[in-house]
Write a protein that binds this DNA or RNA. Sequence first.
DNA 1: TGCATATACCTTGTATTACAAAGTACATGG
DNA 2: CCATGTACTTTGTAATACAAGGTATATGCA
Lengths: 111, 111
Amino acid sequence: MKTQLKKGALELCVLAVLARGDSYAYDIVNQLSRSMAISEGTVYPLMRRLQDEAWVTTYLVESSAGPSRKYYQLTPAGHAALAAMQREWREFVSEIDSVLVPGSVAMEHQQ
Amino acid sequence: MKTQLKKGALELCVLAVLARGDSYAYDIVNQLSRSMAISEGTVYPLMRRLQDEAWVTTYLVESSAGPSRKYYQLTPAGHAALAAMQREWREFVSEIDSVLVPGSVAMEHQQ
DNA sequence: TGCATATACCTTGTATTACAAAGTACATGG
DNA sequence: CCATGTACTTTGTAATACAAGGTATATGCA
């Protein structure tokens, strides 16, 4: 159930994380997993999609504690996409809320 | 994009509509399409899923302006599911917002 | 009668995507 | 030299939104 809700929002979350600074997939997973259930198998294909959209560029940085890290950096198009998706997110929440609570904000009378 | 966000939330919306009164699929589509883009091909399979979950029961009512309408009525389990999904919806929005606006809700130690 | 239109239902096929699971590879300490 | 932690990637499965098409009923109108 919740899995379905999550679809599409993760892309927004990843872009939001990258807006706070360049990062690599493994770290993004760890950051997001503090707020929500998320797995590697979801994020890596998503990073590929972000590249395909030209919303991010990548560069390698060697690590002293394991294999090289592939950092992702937002492009101007990526920043624009983030802004657009934040707007869409707000609209989406409003749409759903308008269905859940028609008219006023009184949620005590149902059925 | 928005299509993906929508997944999972539609079920919640349909249950919310039914909580305001029994209705039939064709009318639910019309009601929801005032707030959001939605198509018949999405709703009919969804109604079937609600039946499979025993969240709704159905009854036929003849119409003077077309074929009989299959009305859907929430069961007690359906009301409970609606309440649970509303809670999940709130949690989900909070989770996403906490990522979009770090520091607002649950951000302990951000790097 | 015949046909268009509106109502109402349902099914099929396709695209998207979250996730588990598995695999590859690097670095370090016991 | 191998277990552990780090880091990347691919494969297969399930869920589901939607377009498109199909069926059926009722009415108005030419």
